[in-house]
């Protein structure tokens, strides 16, 4: 079972590289990165695409759901 560690590292590293490519090429992800940099996650196209997906879960600094 512990031999899977090497596979896991490869998967994560490969995914990181690939993810950077996706962010570079997809406008929604570029805008999401910019919104995250500005600290305005609610402006992120990725976040707004999920506005109807579990709408009770909001982007806050505390718990996932707030009163």
């Amino acid at each position: 079972m512990e031999r899977g560690a090497k596979q896991l590292v490869l998967i994560v590293l490969g995914a990181m590289l690939f993810g950077l490519v996706v962010i570079a090429l997809r406008p929604e992800y570029r805008a999401a990165a910019a919104a995250m940099w500005r600290g305005r996650m609610e402006d992120s196209p990725v976040w707004t695409s999920n506005k109807d997906y579990y709408p009770g879960i909001r982007w806050t600094t505390g718990g996932a759901r707030e009163d």
Partner: peptide, 29 residues
């Protein structure tokens, strides 16, 4: 709920609903 928030912030819909389903068993969406 906290992991769902991360998914919503990092994966476009509807793929986010797919990841929520297979990772967290979320049926809604």
């Amino acid at each position: 709920d906290r992991i769902t928030r991360v998914i919503k912030a990092t994966i476009l819909h509807p793929e986010s609903a797919f990841i929520g389903g297979v990772t967290l068993g979320l049926r809604y969406g």
